[in-house]
């Protein structure tokens, strides 16, 4: 059985590249193992892989465990597509905050008149330059399509809880198998009073820790910030940390020294409330979310328990509903 520990990356082992035992690139090494085991299949693009049925069965098990943990809150459940109106990226401020991570969709729109030029461009591979923006974009965080849906609706006094299944795109190609360009988030979102939103976030840090520990993961909660773009983004990151708005649950995937965020719990304050006109009584509604990174949790499980889920500990298998 190959686990992260078996790959020579024990806690306290030399940093990557520093010793003979550790692979010079633990990220590439684990990705190669996942490819060799057929759990992921390369596409030629870093961060974009095909997934095996075994891998998907892990994801389904995690989804079910998250839904079970959320059931007590009787959330309204939505499944959102990967594609969103591009305007949503402006409304959420992702255009300004993460211009390097977002993506929008282009298509051919010049009709018959431009088709000859387009064919010539296709011959030389420059066809993307002949496409026009469609008004569509790729979703950056699974809960984002929720907020415009709630615009103008009164949030009840006790607030509302939503469970969201969604896919997201982040343009950050990497050999780290945990850094996917397209991945799934399973979120539990609260919209309502400021104190209730903060309590939702705090409760889900604890529930998330417990859920991951039941799955046999070595997980801890750490203060974090989003990767806001550029030098000016440092201000946004510093504010986010100063106000303790983001907590990440981290677990080892490719490295014990640098564990990976597999789940994050966030206070949005009135960011989305202001952007989308969400009202709670006489005030702007606050929101908070927990987002479980399904592929990352699956990878953390594979790193912890080995690449053959049929041989995982029975307690873990039971937790996944197997």
């Amino acid at each position: 059985m190959t686990t992260l520990a078996h790959r020579g990356a024990e806690p306290g082992a030399p940093a990557p590249g520093a010793g003979a035992v550790t692979h010079s690139d633990p990220y590439r090494a684990f990705r190669d193992e996942l490819f060799a085991a057929g759990l992921l299949v390369p596409t030629g693009i870093d961060g974009l892989y095909l997934r095996s049925e075994v891998f998907e069965s892990i994801v389904r098990g995690i989804d079910a465990a998250v839904s079970e943990a959320a059931a007590a809150e009787a959330p309204t459940i939505y499944h959102f597509p990967l594609v969103v109106p591009a305007r949503l990226l402006e409304q959420t401020d992702y255009v300004r905050s993460f211009p390097d991570l977002i993506g929008v969709l282009d298509s051919y729109a010049k009709g018959e008149a431009g088709y000859a030029d387009f064919l010539a461009a296709a011959e030389e591979g420059s066809w993307p330059n002949h496409l026009d923006h469609t008004g569509l974009g790729l979703c950056s965080a699974a809960c984002h399509p929720l907020y415009p849906m709630l615009a103008g609706r009164e949030v009840p006094p006790r607030g509302r809880c939503f469970e969201i299944f969604g896919q997201v795109f982040r343009h950050e190609p990497s050999v780290d198998p945990a850094r996917l360009q397209v991945f799934r988030q399973h979120e539990v979102v609260f919209v309502g009073a400021p104190a209730d939103a903060a309590a939702h976030r705090d409760a889900w840090v604890e529930r998330g820790l417990a859920l991951h520990r039941r799955l046999g993961l070595e997980v801890e909660a750490v203060a974090a910030n989003d990767p806001f773009f550029g030098r000016s983004g440092k201000i946004l990151a510093a504010n986010q940390r100063a106000e303790a708005l983001k907590v990440e649950l981290v677990a080892p995937i490719c490295s014990f020294e640098r564990p990976t965020a597999i789940t994050s719990a966030n206070c949005h304050l009135d960011h989305f409330g202001m952007a989308f006109g969400l009202r709670h009584g006489e005030s702007v509604a606050h929101s908070a979310c927990v987002g479980f990174g399904l592929e990352r949790i699956a990878l953390a499980l594979l790193a912890a328990h080995g690449l053959e889920p049929s041989r995982w500990p029975s307690s873990v298998r039971q937790e996944l509903g197997w």
């Binding site: 300004r96 905050s97 000016s232 201000i235 946004l236």
Partner: peptide, 10 residues
């Protein structure tokens, strides 16, 4: 706001 402080800084 955080975002307008970015514009202000630039």
């Amino acid at each position: 706001t955080s975002h307008s402080s970015v514009s202000l800084m630039l």
